[in-house]
């Protein structure tokens, strides 16, 4: 975890971090354009504070609702500050919805998907960025095109296939379809295009390194910062995935999101306990965000620019 300094994140973030230093010797404030150099005025900050509050208030209110009993939550006026029942609600949620199993399951699913995505996407991204082979352009286009296919189009046969090979209701059924994604391949390719000089590869070849050796000792070290970002983005997505897991898994063996959906779909859901479950499912990711927010922001921005 020592590679988190701003210089090691993806290139576009660096460009963003130093907007004022690009070829701007003189001219001063007056001549500058509407772009990046102008300082934000009070209005900018007020607007950002409003939007920022809007972004976190629903999460704050999750905490509030999770810390009262149901009567209080549904009463008018609704509670606005946290109450005293947080711990007992968390315990009830934990017991009612198999949340213990669900958390473990989600950890397994998200870790497997993240590890596989990192491995396969780095390999493929490297091949598309720096290796020459027949059909490279067309195959890359095919990879991008798969991004436009929503999962809805294949869930029916997927469900049948999974039950056919004995994975019905098992974690395998949500892990395997998501092992490697087009976004990750594209993301790693974009990063390696700029970050990995051909000289390094050539030098390794002159030294007699095989291709897999080059991947191991040249590509992986260079790719590591981008892999970290991709890893976090993948983990967040895998943790939060809802549609296919909800169809594929059942109440006895759910992921955390599936458990949450089922908790609320029961006949008389206790809203404060549902909220406690929502809190449990969200806290780990919020923690990741607080610690690695900068890298995640940089990752999304660098994945976006060059299409």
């Amino acid at each position: 975890m020592t590679t988190t300094s701003p210089t090691t994140t993806a290139p576009a973030l660096d460009r963003g971090a130093l907007p004022a230093s690009e070829g701007k010797g003189h001219g001063g404030r007056f001549k500058l354009g509407a772009g990046q150099q102008l300082k934000g005025g009070p209005f900018t900050y007020v607007a950002l504070i409003v939007v920022g509050l809007g972004s976190v208030l629903p999460l704050y209110w999750t905490l509030v609702a999770a810390s009262h009993d149901q009567q209080r939550v549904l009463d008018s006026p609704p509670p606005l500050v946290p109450g005293s029942r947080l711990w007992s609600n968390l315990q009830s949620a934990w017991e009612q919805a198999h949340l213990g199993t669900a958390i473990v399951n989600t950890l397994i699913v998200a870790s497997c998907i993240t590890a596989a995505t990192l491995f396969f996407c780095t390999l493929a991204g490297y091949a598309f960025a720096k290796m020459r082979f027949r059909g490279r352009g067309a195959l890359m286009t095919a990879v991008i095109a798969t991004l436009t296919i929503p999962p809805q189009l294949s869930v029916v046969p997927l469900f049948m296939m999974m039950s056919d090979i004995g994975w019905g209701g098992k974690l395998e059924s949500v892990i395997f379809p998501t092992l490697v994604g087009a976004f990750g391949v594209f993301f790693m390719r974009q990063y390696l295009l700029e970050a990995l000089p051909y000289e390094l590869i050539e030098a390794a070849k002159v030294d007699g390194a095989s291709n897999i050796r080059i991947v191991w000792s040249v590509v992986l070290p260079v790719a590591r910062p981008a892999m970290m970002v991709l890893g976090m983005l993948t983990f967040v997505q895998a943790w939060n995935d809802f549609f296919w897991p909800f169809l594929a898994l059942n109440q006895e063996n759910p992921t955390i999101q599936v458990a949450l959906g089922q908790l609320s779909a029961s006949y008389t859901p206790d809203q404060s306990i549902v909220m406690a479950g929502a809190l449990i499912s969200t806290l780990p990711l919020l923690l990741v965000f607080v610690i690695f927010g900068k890298q995640i922001v940089g990752g999304i921005m660098s994945g976006a620019v060059k299409g």
Binding site: G52, P58, F242, Q257, S264, S281, V297
Partner: peptide, 21 residues
């Protein structure tokens, strides 16, 4: 930037349940 991205860390299930309330 991180602040406005926090909803992205929230799952569709959590977000929907809170807004349902």
């Amino acid at each position: 930037r991180t602040l406005i991205l926090t909803p992205y860390a929230t799952s569709v299930a959590t977000a929907s349940l809170v807004f349902a309330l």
